[in-house]
């Protein structure tokens, strides 16, 4: 954990970007403490990529500014570029170069010592399980391999700050899991991460803090847990073992859970409840010898959060 007085490694201050009449990013501010992960969550067109492009000096903000490792993105773009790595939305590897050539090119551009360039490429290929494919052109790589190569390219200069723009979009679940593992490893080593995602699960899995962004504006902010709490009470879910118990259970549960919902097909009751009501219910059902398959509290998913904040689902909006 960062000491409270340490300055954040990534800081956005009132960032605004307009394209003509359209405001793509509207007064966005956030801070990412050193060694932590911020998830920027929102549907396509929410302004995530534009925010990342401003923070990584690819496009100038219309107003506002930002700081990376203490360097101002407008006044010291060169220092900013030396402090961060960027993995853009489309895996930006050179398809006609091999994995090794891709990494060496980046190392050459950084001006890394020639001898070091060679061993560095080997190390990165090894670390991202690309050694076997090192001398194949990237065109032949799978989606997951491309992403790993892209990420490896962002790490050539071992930057303390990493920006990842939708790092797992389009990946199959297994490749996604693998990439998450790699990212967790980087964070453990002290890298500060900002990642954008449309996947609520991803933010939930990786981020210490989440900013929900919609139509260029920050609409919610907090830890994944806080955001879940904000979207209302947890729900109690009871699944009965025998269908014939449904009428009796219905009578009993009604007394404890005010807005009870019954799904007969799966013998499942659900409704807003708290921890105390679980105990009451459990003993009530036991007293009447009603067997249950499952009984528990279900916290709202980030998807529910998004729905309650924006009125539409994140992944629907993306389509």
């Amino acid at each position: 954990m960062t000491p409270p007085n340490a300055s954040p490694t990534i800081e956005a201050i009132d960032l605004v970007k307009t394209f003509g009449d359209m405001t793509a990013v509207d007064r966005v501010s956030f801070q990412v403490p050193t060694g932590s992960v911020l998830g920027l969550l929102g549907p396509n067109g929410a302004g995530k990529t534009t925010t990342v492009r401003m923070m990584t000096t690819l496009t100038p903000p219309t107003s506002g500014t930002g700081r990376i490792a203490g360097h101002d993105i407008i006044k010291e773009p060169a220092a900013v570029r030396r402090s961060m790595g960027l993995t853009a939305q489309s895996a930006t590897v050179d398809e006609l170069l091999t994995g090794r050539e891709n990494l060496r090119l980046i190392a050459d551009l950084y001006g890394i010592d020639k001898q070091r360039t060679r061993s560095l490429a080997d190390e990165l290929l090894e670390r991202f399980s690309l050694t076997d494919a090192a001398d194949k052109v990237a065109k032949q790589y799978s989606g997951g391999m491309r992403r790993r190569l892209d990420l490896a390219a962002s790490l050539v200069a071992a930057p303390p700050v990493l920006f990842l723009d939708e790092p797992t979009t389009g990946l199959d679940p297994r490749s996604r899991q693998e990439l998450w593992e790699v990212l967790r490893g980087l964070v453990k080593e002290g890298t500060t991460l900002l990642l954008t995602t449309q996947y609520l699960e991803e933010a939930d899995n990786l981020a210490d803090n989440v900013i929900v962004i919609d139509k260029g504006r920050i609409i919610a902010e907090g830890t994944p847990l806080q955001l879940k709490d904000r979207s209302g009470a947890a729900r109690l879910v009871v699944t009965l073992s025998r269908p014939e118990d449904i009428p009796q259970a219905h009578e009993l549960l009604k007394g404890v859970i005010p807005e009870l919902h019954l799904d007969e097909d799966v013998r499942q009751f659900s409704g807003p409840a708290d921890l105390a009501s679980i105990n009451t219910l459990a003993s009530l059902l036991a007293d009447h010898e009603i067997e249950v398959d499952d009984l528990g509290l279900k916290r709202p998913s980030l998807d529910d959060v998004f729905l309650s904040l924006t009125g539409h689902r994140a992944e629907e909006a993306a389509k």
Partner: peptide, 12 residues
């Protein structure tokens, strides 16, 4: 393909 962006994000 975003290659130019990649180059522009480097200190070159």
């Amino acid at each position: 393909k975003g290659i130019i962006d990649r180059f522009r994000s480097l200190p070159i």
